[in-house]
Design a protein around this nucleic acid. Sequence first.
DNA 1: ACCTGAACACCGTTCAAGT
DNA 2: ACCTGAACACCGTTCAAGT
Lengths: 221, 221
Amino acid sequence: MARPSTPKLSRAAIATAALALVDRSGEFTMPALATALGVSPSSLYNHVGSKADIVELMRGEAMSAIRLPALPDPLPDRLPDGGSPPAAGDQDWMAVLRGIAIGYLDSYARHPRLIPLLTAYTVRDATTLRVYDAMARAFAAGGYGPAATLRAVTILDSFILGSALDAAAPTVVWEADEAASREFTEALAAGLGEPQRARRAFLEGLDLILGGFAARAGESF
Amino acid sequence: MARPSTPKLSRAAIATAALALVDRSGEFTMPALATALGVSPSSLYNHVGSKADIVELMRGEAMSAIRLPALPDPLPDRLPDGGSPPAAGDQDWMAVLRGIAIGYLDSYARHPRLIPLLTAYTVRDATTLRVYDAMARAFAAGGYGPAATLRAVTILDSFILGSALDAAAPTVVWEADEAASREFTEALAAGLGEPQRARRAFLEGLDLILGGFAARAGESF
DNA sequence: ACCTGAACACCGTTCAAGT
DNA sequence: ACCTGAACACCGTTCAAGT
C-alpha cells in the first residue's frame, strides 16, 4: 500500500480539503488535513513545501470565485474602434470599482475562519494580484495618476480586509461594560441585532470612500 | 530556589516582556517568553491562564499609549455652564474622531508584528472598548443616531485595522508579474518608494471617510 | 513518483514537589 | 504563594523504506 497506481493527492485536492476543513472547524493542522484526505501527514509533503504553502493555496481557492468585470484591457484601445464616445463617464469606473470591492469582500466573507489565518502569512497569490490590477486600471480610467492610484488601491484594500476581519471575528466582544457611556450603550442596543450588520456597514463605508474618490476625480493629482 | 521571597513575575512584567519579544523577533512562544524573563515556562501559569490571555495583555499594553481626547463626559452637561454656544461646530467632533483614529492606528503601528497575532484571538480588552466608546460619543455629538453610530464606528474600526495590517505585513508582495497591466505597473513604480507610503494612504482614506461622514451629518438617519 | 511509519525537535499546559 | 522539573498530548517536518 505504498504508492497507489493512481495518486491519492494533488495540490488542488489539498487546497479544497484544507479550505473545507477550515470552514468547518476553524482549525488547520497537518494531521487533521491528512485525516480528512485519508492519508498520512507526511504524504502531504510530496505535493506542498510547507504549511504556509497550503495557506497560499487556500487564498487562491477563496479568491478564484471573484468575477472581475471585463475591463477593456489596454484601455486606450477601445477609442479607435468607433461607436461609443471617449466614455469619460465617471459612472463607469466607479461602478467597476464597486463591483470589484464587493466581490473581493464576498470572497473573504464566504470563508470567515480563513481570514485570521491569511493575515499571519505574506501574500503571493496571482488571483489576488489580478484584483489589484483591475482596481488600478479602474482608477487610471478615472483619471488618477500612478502615485494616487497606488494610494487609492491601498485604501480600498485596507478597508475591505478590515471589514472582512471585523465581520469574521468581531474585533470587540460587543458588550458595554460598566464604564460605557450612554451613547455607546444605545448604539450597541440599536445596532447589534441587525441581521446584515457587518455587511451594511461595509457597503456604507464603501460608498463613503468611493464618493470621496469621485469628488476628487476632477482635481489635479 | 523554588519560591523566591520576592516574586520574579507579575502580569505587568509578563505583558511588557511578551510585547518586547514580539516586537523584536515576531515570534511568541511560551518557552521563548520564559527565557526572556529568566524563568521556567510552567511558572507563567501562576499568573496567566493561557497563551491567549497573554495576547490580551499585549493588546492592552499596546493600546494603553492612546491619548483619548478629553470629551466632556455626559455631553449635554456642558451646555448650562455658560460661555460657549451650543457648539454645533462640526469641526469639533470631526477633529476628535480624527485624533482618535490616528492615535488608534499609531498604537498598532508601533507594534507591527503584534497585529497578525491580534486577529487570531477575540478581543476583550477594556482600553480598546474605551476607544470605541469615545468614537461613539463623538458621532453622537455630531448628531448621529444610535444605529448610524454603530455602523460608523464599525467603518472606522475596519479601516484602521485594515490599514494597520496593510502597513505591517504588506498584503501583496507588491511586485508586478508578467500579467500585470501598464497601469498597475506604473502605480507600483511611482508609489512603492515613497517613505511614508502606508501612513499617507491611511491619512488620505481617513479624510475621505470623515469627509463623507461630515457631509451626511446634515441628513436624517 | 508517491505513500508509509518512525523519528526529531518543538509546542502549550498540567501537576506533584519543593520552599 | 510562587517557582521548578518531569510529564502529556500534541505539532510541523524529514527521511529511509517500500512499491
